[in-house]
Design a protein around this nucleic acid. Structure first.
Lengths: 248, 248
DNA sequence: CGCGATTTGTGCACGCCTTCACAAGCGCCT
DNA sequence: AGGCGCTTGTGAAGGCGTGCACAAATCGCG
């Protein structure tokens, strides 16, 4: 599949894979840049300036340049960045060219939606297995996949080389599922269940809690309400910084 | 005690707006503390130490103490924090005692799941309206609510005093929906559609992109794979506390 | 009533991230 | 060929957040 190999940078003397040590904050933004780049590529653009790409990704242009500089010099001064080259580079860094296999545990309301979420398939991932503990759900067909019982997890995970698992179960069973995933060799977990998961240190966990996001918004509503109630009428200071809250 | 904290607030006459200026990072953690506290309350605990609560919330105890200190002194030295008092305090700060009305736009796969998500109702929010642009979906009953056409948004939003909107539409229509929400008086938006929304500066936007979370995990997989190919074994350097919004 | 055990609240130092500002590099036009 | 305008890449500064370490405060017990 990988016809193009970007194994080296000009002047790269190191023989080691030389995985650039990217700051976490940068890594978190790379997917956003990638999405913006794909969008640009569809419109036919061949190059893009840091200013343009930054606007499309909703960040500061200096930040974008610094982020990209961390992964090497892929821009041309006076011109900008080559869109397709940058896409390939970011996809390589993120490991998206490997079309990773993902499994999903918990086919409830949310799990159902995730299983059918087109955004996964279109962005470098294959959902290859669905699991649930409820016998009534086992056997159900979702989006071309059959729901299997969670006891089959270990076997299937090994068979399909699944390294990433998604937990969409009720909170009470999340830890048990996480343990099962770890036992099956999964080393990255995306957890939608509220609560803290305990996993070995070599396993990465990212959490998405929909209620937490709403609560953060609620706080800002509360704050805004208490500000407008005060005299002085400071209309929320039109600082351009506020708009950046998108990325945070 | 809280006098050295704001040095550069313009027009600060010394009267604090009855609203502590919490660091964003702290705000993002408050909901997690709250969840842990509710869990503790169910087990009958009346007080909890910073150490205990920190463990339940998955953070460092010093960080927890500093966070809580920002909202005042609600602990007792030598004893710990009063659980129910702290719950009430955090819920007040987050504005959850107002049982905010939320509307949801886009009743596709994901929107369907969100409409039925129990976590919203149980944590201080009421989903009071569902909207979609597709006439085939209008009229559908979901979780006791009727899907309405998006043209009714403005009227209903005013009628129900909706301040928070959730966007779960395809990316192409997200901006238009955001504009409609803003026009209807919504001042906080939770966006599940990939892409950057442009909104007035007084409107807060938080974004949740499921594919981005997976891509970040994919990066770490890629990194781990390239590390295990090297000698040196495992570095436990990664702190287990890297689960946070990040904003996002 | 005083002492020790316990736990909070916080001053301080360190490191990461962001942002500014500008020199270096590149292409185009004359 | 040379100059000019545009854009990248980066040094430096400042801000924010984290974690340590400890003084202050409180309770229980002898």
């Amino acid at each position: 599949m990988s016809q193009q190999r970007h194994g080296n940078t000009p002047g790269d003397t190191g023989r080691v894979p030389a995985f650039p040590e990217l700051p976490e904050a940068t890594i978190a933004r790379l997917p956003e840049y990638l999405r913006a780049l794909h969008h640009l590529a569809e419109t036919g653009a061949e190059t893009v300036s840091s200013e343009g790409l930054a606007a499309a990704a909703g960040v500061n242009s200096a930040k974008l340049r610094k982020d990209l500089s961390h992964l090497g010099s892929y821009g041309t001064r006076g011109v900008g960045y080559d869109v397709s080259l940058l896409v390939a580079q970011i996809e390589y860094i993120l490991g998206l060219d490997e079309n990773r296999a993902v499994c999903l545990v918990g086919v409830g309301n949310l799990g159902h939606a995730l299983a059918g979420y087109a955004g996964f398939a279109s962005r470098g991932f294959r959902v290859v297995a669905l699991f649930d503990a409820d016998p009534k759900k086992v056997g159900e067909q979702i989006n071309g996949l059959t729901v299997r019982h969670i006891d089959e997890l270990e076997q299937i995970a090994a068979q399909e080389s699944i390294a990433i698992g998604v937990i969409a179960t009720p909170p009470g069973t999340a830890q048990a599922v996480a343990d099962a995933l770890v036992a099956a060799g999964v080393t990255s977990i995306l957890n939608f269940a509220p609560g803290v998961l305990s996993v070995p240190s070599n396993v990465d966990v990212r959490k998405v809690d929909l209620a937490i996001e709403l609560q953060i918004l609620s706080f800002h509503e509360h704050r805004k309400a208490s500000l407008t109630a005060l005299p002085g009428g400071r209309s929320a200071a039109a600082s351009p910084d506020n708009q950046e809250a998108v990325g945070s």
